[in-house]
Design a protein around this nucleic acid. Structure first.
Length: 251
DNA sequence: ATGGTTGTGCAACAA
């Protein structure tokens, strides 16, 4: 089975690209972020025609998460602990629990949104502590909006004060990971690999990006995963998202 | 310091 995450930056703007990639990649389950639409206008029929059922949890204009799957989904939960239904969507796929997360961007240091971002990470860790045991087969994936390590950004020395790579953010990310997650891409690959490149300044062509999209598995799940990769191809296509998918392989 | 680009939705704001 292949399970992927992709910040699509508007599902209505990105539908042709997403359907093309599903066809080519033969992914079974796709967790999407920044769908940017209410559930009534999510292109559910188009996904169904392609063989995928969807679970959606969106809102107007901003945020929005959704899972498309060609295997049955169950136990669909929008939001977490009563919060943020446009940022977190949990589904069961067979015997594994998939959490699709779109973590706050944060604006810049000092912003109210930045404080909220740090609190979100801390509170989400507490939520996991209260909700899941360490032996769960848990897969947390999505756009976390924080790069882990210097090799996960294109200019670590110049980015100490850049959103997504500030020490406080990295500490918050690590606190969440320390719940017991394995960073699945890093488990299999030591090379530098970004998942997001700004649309501006030809950042993609110059490969100036950040690794901010992750698939994290609990120990119990991680032992079953055979590979995790970043598929850069759809970032090269016409009208791309500024993010590209991360794919997990499970036998 | 600012700007550059894309999306939503039609002016700004978010990223």
């Amino acid at each position: 089975m292949k399970i992927a995450t992709w910040n699509v930056n508007s599902i209505r703007a990105r539908l042709p690209v997403v359907l093309k990639w599903l066809q080519e990649s033969q992914v079974d389950v796709l967790a999407m972020q920044e769908t940017k639409t209410v559930d009534e206008t999510f292109p559910t029929a188009e996904f169904r025609a392609a063989g995928y059922e969807v679970a959606v949890s969106g809102q107007k204009t901003y945020n929005g998460v959704a899972v498309a799957s060609r295997v049955p989904l169950s136990k669909i939960v929008r939001g977490w602990a009563g919060n943020d239904p446009s940022r977190v969507l949990t589904v069961n796929v067979g015997e594994l629990t998939l959490i699709d997360g779109y973590f706050p961007h944060g604006g810049e240091r000092g912003d109210e949104a930045y404080v909220h971002k740090l609190e979100f990470f801390h509170n989400f860790r507490t939520y996991l502590d209260n909700t899941y045991s360490r032996d769960c087969r848990l897969l947390l994936m999505g756009d976390f909006n924080v790069a882990r390590e210097p090799q996960d950004v294109w200019a670590p020395d110049e980015m100490q004060d850049a959103i997504g790579f500030m020490q406080e953010e990295r500490d918050a990310l690590e606190e969440l990971r320390a719940w017991g997650f394995v960073d699945l891409f890093r488990r299999f690959h030591s090379e530098q690999q970004f998942t997001w490149w700004d649309y501006r300044m030809n950042m993609f062509k110059r490969n100036m990006g950040m690794r901010i999209d992750y698939a994290w598995g609990s120990e119990a799940l991680a032992t079953e995963v055979t590979d995790c990769l970043v598929d850069v191809e759809p970032r090269r296509w016409e009208k791309p998202s500024d993010h590209t998918p991360v794919v997990v392989m499970i036998p």
